[in-house]
């Protein structure tokens, strides 16, 4: 247990060498990859996410910890494959068509990966149909769309419209986020949720996928 706490603390400190070394030690000690992921890496990233949400740390601190998390995650990956451990779920994310702003979207992707989800990041300027097509072809249960510009918000409504047209509303959950959008806008366009920030987005994904 102490080892797992040390990994979590080293992740929060942004010390990737220590995280890698301690992760190896934990595997050697017989801990499972899932246990290490859940109780050290995800636990550490959750603390980092909450500190960021509380404005105790800056975005670069989150990015540093995320890089550190990867150092541990890379060592766990072979074990997930070997033991056939599935990811916690797939999430398709992207910044909507006409919008290049992707800092928020990237942060959501980082936090979701840190929480153990498989993230399919379509990048920016993503056409509405591509979100849905990718979710269907990849078997993702959640689409996360981001926009910073008010002019590109209607693209989110188009994603909701395509889901409805194809009878996928509710089957594939649509989460929206970004500075100009709101809970009210989410309800207006028929999205399933509004993620105020990256931490909230992870909480919503947790909730949506918990019942599956």
């Amino acid at each position: 247990m102490e080892l797992l706490k040390q990994i979590s603390q080293s992740l929060q400190d942004g010390d990737d060498e220590k995280v890698a070394s301690l992760t190896k030690d934990a595997l050697t000690a017989g801990m499972t990859a899932r246990q290490i992921l859940d109780e050290s890496l995800i636990a550490g990233m959750t603390i980092i996410g909450n500190k960021f949400k509380a404005h105790e740390i800056f975005l670069p601190d989150v990015l540093l910890s995320a890089r550190t998390m990867y150092a541990g995650l890379e060592l766990l990956k072979p074990h997930f494959l070997k033991d056939d451990i599935p990811s916690r779920g797939k999430v398709v994310i992207g910044t909507v068509q006409g919008d290049l702003h992707d800092i928020g979207k990237n942060l959501v992707g980082i936090m979701l990966k840190g929480a153990g989800y498989e993230v399919i990041d379509l990048g920016n300027d993503v056409p509405p149909a591509k979100f849905v097509d990718t979710a269907v072809s990849q078997g993702a249960a959640i689409i996360g769309t981001s926009a910073l510009l008010t002019t590109t918000m209607p693209m989110m409504a188009q994603v909701a419209g395509i889901l409805k047209e194809r009878g996928l509303t509710g089957k594939i959950k649509l989460i929206i986020g970004g500075a100009p959008v709101s809970d009210a806008f989410a309800r207006e366009i028929g999205a399933d949720a509004y993620g105020f920030d990256a931490v909230k987005a992870v909480e919503i994904v947790d909730r949506f996928l918990a019942g599956r």
Partner: peptide, 17 residues
Amino acid sequence: IGELFESGDFLLGAMLD
């Protein structure tokens, strides 16, 4: 920038961005 994000080096990727 894309390669850095892909490889998990979010910090340098974001700074280069």
